[in-house]
C-alpha cells in the first residue's frame, strides 16, 4: 500500500523514500513483514508503534546499516545497499565519540574525504549556533547532559548536509521539559534545512507534535497498520481539540495501550 497524501505539505512533493514489501526476521521473531510506504521529499514522517514492531529495523534499513531479507528500500528511486552521506542518522543513545569534543564530534563527517566544505571551521561554528551549544565547543560528551548530547548528535548528522535525516527515538532519554524545547528546535531546523525526516518514536504525542504524516505500526509481525496526515498549524498546541482528537484516533488504531507522555 502506497500511502501518500499531498494535502499536508505545501512543498512540491515527490517520493524521496520508498519502502517496498520489506521483510526482515531475526531468528524466531519477524521484525518486519511486507512493509510498504513512502515518504515525500521534504516531509516530516513519524513512525509510531509498540516496542518490537521493527521500527528501528526499518530505520536501519533506510540508513543502509541493515539489509532486509526481501523487498527493497529506494531513495530517489535507487536501491539502498550501504550507508551514505545523503542519509544522516541520529541515535537513541546518542552514539557520540567520547574521545572527541563537541567540535570534534560535529566535525567527524566533514573530515571524511567525501566532503569538501570551503571552511569547515565556519561550518562547525554555524552548526554549534544552530543547536545552541555555544560555549561548549571544547567539552567532552561525558560533561554534557542528555539533551545537550542529543544536540551534538543532531549537529553531527546535519554537518554533511544530508538530504534525509533518520532519527531513532532521539529524545527517549531526555526529560519532558527538555524534550519540548528540542521539539520546537528540531522543527525550526527542519524548516530551515528542508530535509526529509523519518522520526521513530513510541510516543503518540511526540509524533502528532512533529509530523506531517504518522505511520502507525503493529508488532509481531511488524506491519504498517495505517497512516495519518496531520494537517495542524505549527507550532502545535497539545491541548487543542484537533490535537487531542488525532492522538485519540491513533491510540485507538494502536489498540493496546502505548506509553505516552503526560
Amino acid at each position: 500500500m502506497a500511502l501518500r497524501s499531498n494535502s499536508s505539505t505545501s512543498r512540491e512533493s515527490s517520493e524521496k523514500i520508498t519502502i517496498q514489501n520489506v521483510s526482515r526476521s531475526y531468528e524466531s521473531t519477524q521484525a518486519l513483514a511486507d512493509v510498504s510506504f513512502s515518504v515525500a521529499e521534504g516531509e516530516f514522517c513519524c513512525v509510531v508503534g509498540p516496542s518490537g514492531c521493527g521500527k528501528t529495523t526499518l530505520l536501519r534499513a533506510i540508513a543502509g546499516l541493515d539489509d532486509p531479507d526481501s523487498g527493497s528500500v529506494l531513495v530517489d528511486g535507487n536501491p539502498v545497499s550501504d550507508p551514505g552521506l545523503d542519509r544522516g542518522m541520529v541515535f537513541q543513545e546518542y552514539a557520540l565519540f567520547p574521545w572527541r569534543t563537541v567540535r570534534g564530534n560535529i566535525r567527524f563527517g566533514l573530515d571524511r574525504p567525501a566532503c569538501d566544505c570551503a571552511d569547515c571551521e565556519a561550518r562547525v561554528r554555524e552548526l554549534i549556533d544552530l543547536v545552541g551549544l555555544e560555549g561548549f565547543e571544547d567539552a567532552y560528551p561525558k560533561e554534557l547532559s542528555g539533551g545537550m548530547k542529543q544536540r551534538v548528535g543532531i549537529a553531527r548528522a546535519l554537518a554533511v548536509d544530508p538530504e534525509i535525516l533518520l532519527m531513532d527515538e532521539p529524545f527517549g532519554s531526555v526529560d519532558a521539559r527538555t524534550r519540548d524545547r528540542l521539539h520546537s528546535e528540531l522543527i525550526d531546523i527542519w524548516t530551515q534545512t528542508e530535509q526529509t525526516v523519518v522520526f521513530i518514536t513510541h510516543d503518540i504525542d511526540e509524533a502528532v507534535t512533529l509530523a506531517d504524516h504518522v505511520v502507525v505500526m503493529d508488532a509481531d509481525p511488524g506491519t504498517v497498520q495505517s497512516t495519518f496526515s496531520i494537517n495542524l498549524e505549527r507550532p502545535r498546541e497539545r491541548t487543542s481539540p484537533d490535537f487531542v482528537d488525532l492522538v485519540a484516533q491513533i491510540r485507538d488504531e494502536l489498540g493496546s495501550p502505548v506509553e505516552t507522555t503526560v
Partner: peptide, 8 residues
C-alpha cells in the same frame, strides 16, 4: 554505525 553513516 554512526561512523559509517558519516562516511567511513
Amino acid at each position: 554505525d554512526a561512523a559509517s553513516t558519516l562516511g567511513v
